[in-house]
Design a protein around this nucleic acid. Sequence first.
DNA 1: GATGAATGAGTATTCATTCAT
DNA 2: AATGAATGAATACTCATTCAT
Lengths: 217, 217, 217, 217
Amino acid sequence: MIEAPVGAQDVAAERGPAATAARLLAAGADLFAARGFHAVTTHDIARHAGVAAGTFYLHFKDKSDLYRAIAQRTVAALQDRLDAAAPGRGTRDGLRARVAALVDFADQHRDLVRILFRAGTKDASVEAEVLDELAARIAQGRSASVAAGEMPRDLDPGVVSQALVGMLARVIAWWVEDPTRIAREDLIETLTQIQLAGTHPPAGGHSKRPEAKLREE
Amino acid sequence: MIEAPVGAQDVAAERGPAATAARLLAAGADLFAARGFHAVTTHDIARHAGVAAGTFYLHFKDKSDLYRAIAQRTVAALQDRLDAAAPGRGTRDGLRARVAALVDFADQHRDLVRILFRAGTKDASVEAEVLDELAARIAQGRSASVAAGEMPRDLDPGVVSQALVGMLARVIAWWVEDPTRIAREDLIETLTQIQLAGTHPPAGGHSKRPEAKLREE
Amino acid sequence: MIEAPVGAQDVAAERGPAATAARLLAAGADLFAARGFHAVTTHDIARHAGVAAGTFYLHFKDKSDLYRAIAQRTVAALQDRLDAAAPGRGTRDGLRARVAALVDFADQHRDLVRILFRAGTKDASVEAEVLDELAARIAQGRSASVAAGEMPRDLDPGVVSQALVGMLARVIAWWVEDPTRIAREDLIETLTQIQLAGTHPPAGGHSKRPEAKLREE
Amino acid sequence: MIEAPVGAQDVAAERGPAATAARLLAAGADLFAARGFHAVTTHDIARHAGVAAGTFYLHFKDKSDLYRAIAQRTVAALQDRLDAAAPGRGTRDGLRARVAALVDFADQHRDLVRILFRAGTKDASVEAEVLDELAARIAQGRSASVAAGEMPRDLDPGVVSQALVGMLARVIAWWVEDPTRIAREDLIETLTQIQLAGTHPPAGGHSKRPEAKLREE
DNA sequence: GATGAATGAGTATTCATTCAT
DNA sequence: AATGAATGAATACTCATTCAT
């Protein structure tokens, strides 16, 4: 649906199985984003897509199947964006570019982001998969940094990747709900900042207990 | 249910309306944690609590009502713990103590934590409330630090509070799912570290990018 | 409840079984009149009467039993009034007096009249009884007139009694719903008039086809 | 359902949504007439119609909706009959023809008449509508007569129309319950008679208190 | 007599899914 | 491929009624 032809919004515009599937995907995205997984029926989706109730099952096994398809496509599209926006793997500019890509993707696909990142709208069985995969990818990415000696030894990479995923998912979902809360530029800057600071050694010595420095608060 | 007598698990042990409500609360916590909100029926809960189906409605308006009651009690209990564990408001030790309290609470009440922090298992209507409230509390706490000049002015407090909530919720839920992933001590240390670093100026000059640029927006 | 002590309205005022029964009767009359038989629960009635749910069954077998008790008492009270207001059995003045008694009773006990005469608010099993009994009484009364040669032979007494009951019940229920529709005096006059005319020979010859006279319309 | 093909009683005979709806209508009429509104469940109706429980809701919003549909169709069919049987608006023959049409309709559709005219078997919300509408129609018809000076001024038209409706509904419901009570011809004659006499001036002077004249009964 | 917590059968209603056309 | 009527299991919720205290 992400790549669905622009004309897909005028329901029932296109003919053929591919177009029907695309319309169902789009309808699902709309409705799941608006009401959450459980408050949407397959009839709703079919009606919204301009097809008969039975047609749904010609294209998707069941409601979760459609949900999964939407999530997967969204994740894939997001990954593409992030990969495309990674000039320097471990550099600040690279990080910033990826954060910007994430923010822009969220801005352009609010529905999908809401489905992906907003808790409680999902099918429990699909639930974990998406964010878990993101976390795994981040963890992978971190290994490089760790190997490069950038990550402190006392920051568990599992924890850090979960922390980053949780943070990004929640902040993005929060922002998408009302983008006037903070300007795009500031959001990108803040997220970059936090990420850098939280996972890279703060200045030279980040020793486990830099009490001296912190005591003064 | 948090403070329910240990003997409560042998179903139907106690008499009286208070005991019945407590059993329903406990049964709900068990089942919601195991299967998520939507996969549990009021009949399940009643059976699990050793009472008749109709009895459920003598104590709770409906399924969401029970859910809300569980969430509220859990949040309240957690708050108490956190408040009790706050020797120095803005100190590293204070922060560490609160993180430790959170981790211990999670360890002792895995079911409740799973209900509270694990996304997608909840009633959409209750969903946001819990974490939003935590975020609000964190945001409040931060204002002090900001006023004290500890927080860099280019870190939007709204973003930071959302980021912290998202991070903590996800990491805790992840850890609770399998506490062997990382030792309690290390988890506490890592979380403390990330939180400190991510929200406090890393040493003297914190921003990689000269403020001048960001200020003018 | 018709004869209930005046103080019964301040719920739970009186003690003792008789007072409790009276309060249940009064509560039932209130609620049945307002919502109809099926929309009232025994809990509603008990609460309205200021007693516990179980107490209801100490005084009445079930909901229908209470309903029946209310209906019977009302009918009995109405009968008393009608009997008291019958100076001349077959005279116009006697008829008028009975009509007036009926109208006044309705005016004073709108709730009860609504229960008795307003269709669809009743328990089907109790339903017929009340009006059927009234019809039977009227039919009895008519026998006298018929025997006296006052009733035309082509007016079946069964039909006439049903017709009168149906007419009176509906008109009274209609009037009670909004007594400003017509003045008490006019209502009484009209009902007397209709009853006289409809059941007595119109003038001298009431022959089966007095076309000549009626043609002029 | 009134015009349903005679073969409709052999359940599930016809295919297609229209036939299903017709079967539900017929099943509803049967059951409502036999047991009253509240004693019938949608499952009963579906079973009686030979369809699955859920199918009911494909054709009717809920039980009241089906009831309303039955009532409306019945009223419409009755109206058609009455309109067709009105050669002379205000003549005795016209009146008699309409009464005959009513009686015959009742004879042919006892179930429907029982639903329509028998009090207490209905949904309270639908309850009033039917008879109220009939009363309104009668009241309208009367206006003509009144304008023509045929109706005495002391017979309130509101009262008269309510009286007629109450009378007809009750007598018809009574007769339908056991048509051997009185021969069709005699019923028609009696109803015509009562209606004429009760609502037209009895002979020449109908003045409000023509005591002298009425004394002679 | 009175209480009120507990019962559990009863009922309306929804909805994922199938299948004959 | 598409249709849409039909299915029927699932489920929330109600309420008359009981009974131990």
